Amino acid sequence: MTAAEIVSQVFLPLSLAIIMLGMGMTLVPSDFTRILKNPKSILIGLTNQLIFLPIIGFLLALAFNLNPVMAVGLMILATCPGGATSNLITQVCKGNIALSVTLTATASVLCVVTIPFILSYVLEYFGTDTNTTIELPIVDTILQILVITIIPISIGMLIRKFKSNFAIRMEKPMRIASTVIFILVFLAVVAANFNMIGPAMKEVGLATLLLNILTMGMGYLTARLFKLDLKSAISITVESGIQNGTLAFVIATSILNNVEMGIPTGAYSIWMFITGGILMWQLGKRPKANLAKAHPK
């Protein structure tokens, strides 16, 4: 097993599952029912992830006149909505964790339909049609959501219900642990993809940086335009700009059998950890009092 495989298949999933457990200890069922009763935030978040993100990616591929392989690689990334890393960043940024988890789970299921639809058109448009039928590993995708996100969060919520004092005491340590694991994951990603980083930044560095910044900006602006509270706006911002790089790599290398198409994901992974880290640094130090009005009774 290579270093990259150890990072993506063992270290990252295990670390995220532990963080999801801690995240669950900060949640109660009413956090989710409140969202479901007023689903506007979910609709805005999903629109950004599943519609605006691919459109922005497509326009950037045209604007930068990327070669067909890089253009398709950028679009693969743009069709893969945020994974569990976005939940981790949202927690440290003191965003709406329940909304972040709901968006991640919902988008991950819907992308089983949207990714083949969009990429089939993209492959034909950019002249790289390989006559490959794009079939995502549906069972693996659902299992990943369950094992890394749903089950750990559910266990954490049970702990919160039956051992509430312990759960409350663990909130700050788990936020610190989230930050530490985020840094370790970033270093692991850099180490595992070290040979790819130079060529990736040279070929699509600016395009992927703009994709990251524009999608985050779009997420925040749409959330505030529709008068969502600050915590929800933070969640949608993060969910819009933090993509599921692991899924993108699988599509490029395993389904389309083209390692070069994974280059934009390598570049984007660096940018999203940098911008995500900046958000965590700036928003994570905000006192809870500043966010109190963002939690409606």
Score class of each variant (00 low, 15 high):
Ile263Phe: 11
Ala252Ser: 11
Met272Ser: 03
Ser120Ile: 10
Met201Asn: 05
Leu36His: 12
Leu62Glu: 15
Val28Pro: 00
Ile242Glu: 04
Met75Ala: 06
Ala71Arg: 04
Gly24Ala: 08
Met75Lys: 06
Gly205Met: 01
Gln243Thr: 02
Phe126Glu: 03
Leu123Pro: 00
Pro173Trp: 15
Phe64Trp: 14
Gly217Ala: 03
Pro29Ala: 08
Val189Ser: 06
Ala61His: 14
Gly219Asp: 01
Leu158Gly: 08
Leu62Trp: 14
Leu158Arg: 05
Thr106Ser: 15
Ile151His: 13
Met23Trp: 13
Phe249Ile: 09
Val180Gly: 05
Ile251Ser: 00
Lys293Arg: 12
Gly156Gln: 04
Ile181Thr: 06
Ile183Trp: 07
Asp31Ala: 03
Ile155Asn: 10
Met216Arg: 07
Thr128Lys: 04
Ala78Val: 08
Leu16Gly: 03
Leu119Glu: 09
Val28Arg: 12
Val72Thr: 15
Ala252Ile: 08
Ile278Arg: 10
Arg34Lys: 11
Leu206Lys: 02
Thr2Phe: 15
Pro116Phe: 04
Leu77Asp: 06
Thr114Met: 14
Leu77Ala: 04
Ser240His: 11
Ala3Met: 14
Ile251Gly: 00
Ile183Gln: 05
Lys202Cys: 10
Asp31Tyr: 10
Ile274Pro: 11
Val250Met: 14
Ile42Asn: 04
Gly276Asp: 02
Ile35Val: 07
Val72Leu: 09
Lys297Ile: 01
Gly83Lys: 05
Ile153Val: 13
Ala223Met: 09
Leu21Phe: 15
Ala267Gln: 08
Asn87Thr: 03
Gly22Leu: 07
Gly57Tyr: 09
Ile176Thr: 11
Lys288Val: 03
Ala107Lys: 00
Leu14Asp: 01
Gln9Asp: 15
Thr179Ile: 14
Gly57Arg: 09
Lys293Ala: 14
Leu211Val: 11
Ile145Trp: 08
Thr130Phe: 09
Glu5Cys: 05
Ala78Met: 11
Gly127Ser: 11
Thr246Tyr: 09
Asn65Met: 14
Ala294Cys: 11
Thr133Pro: 08
Asn257Val: 03
Val139Cys: 10
Glu5Gln: 14
Met25Ser: 10
Asp140Ile: 01
Pro29Gln: 12
Ile97Cys: 02
Val204Met: 11
Phe166Gly: 09
Asn65Ala: 12
Lys288Asn: 10
Leu279Tyr: 09
Ile134Val: 15
Gln282Pro: 14
Ile148Asn: 01
Ala207Glu: 06
Leu206Thr: 00
Arg286Asn: 07
Ala4Gly: 08
Met218Thr: 09
Phe186Arg: 02
Met23Leu: 13
Asp31Val: 10
Ile150Trp: 02
Thr79Ser: 07
